[in-house]
């Protein structure tokens, strides 16, 4: 049977799919399928930040009440410069690694940046205290703790991302015969 309409449609089939898929279509699907994983990590991360802020806050409070010897202060500042170099390098390296691993989680990257920025604010206060010679031992301890908290947070994120990667790579496929 000569179906001219069918022939025409068959010959021009591609032109009938002229609409583009909606912008942001994948984001909505991704959120629906994977949104809970981001939420799980958010809880992990907030507990880390809260612990860091609380610890450093307590140490700051304690340092105000303690007097210190001038000779010890100079030694502490020198020690801190070396430690700062070491920790700053570690943090930067791990941060770069996390960025690479979290390419498909841009929201996670933004939140990580915000949380590390909070610790940077605390660090700025500690540096002011160090400069003002406010009980250097405790201030230096708090600064080191600040760096360690950043590293801990970054390592937690990396562990989370590695676990996600492992989950995705596990083999469960079976074929029907």
């Amino acid at each position: 049977m000569n179906d001219r309409l069918k022939q025409y449609i068959d010959q021009n089939r591609g032109a009938f799919d002229s609409l583009d898929a909606p912008i942001g279509g994948w984001d909505a699907i991704d959120k629906q399928l994977h949104g809970h994983k981001h939420k799980r990590f958010r809880i992990l991360r907030y507990s880390g930040i809260a612990a860091a802020a609380a610890l450093i806050g307590i140490m700051l409070y304690v340092t105000v009440l303690q007097p210190q010897n001038n000779g010890e202060q100079i030694a502490e500042v020198s020690y801190m410069s070396e430690a700062e170099l070491y920790y700053a390098t570690e943090v930067n390296q791990k941060r770069a690694q996390v960025y690479q691993m979290s390419a498909q989680y841009p929201e996670l990257q933004t939140e990580m940046d915000n949380d590390l920025a909070e610790l940077d604010t605390i660090m700025a206060e500690l540096k002011r205290d160090l400069k003002d010679n406010v009980d250097n031992t405790e201030v230096v301890e708090a600064m080191i703790q600040n760096y360690r908290m950043k590293l801990s947070i970054l390592e937690d994120i990396m562990q989370f991302l590695e676990e996600q990667q492992e989950d995705n790579e596990q083999t469960h496929t079976s074929y029907a015969l």
Binding site: L19, G25, W26, Q104
Partner: peptide, 19 residues
């Protein structure tokens, strides 16, 4: 297996036709 990157790739391959 839930790999988001692979799912996104499939979406990009078939979204237009399905839409």
């Amino acid at each position: 297996k839930g790999n988001a990157k692979a799912q996104r790739k499939l979406y990009e391959l078939y979204a237009r036709a399905m839409f």
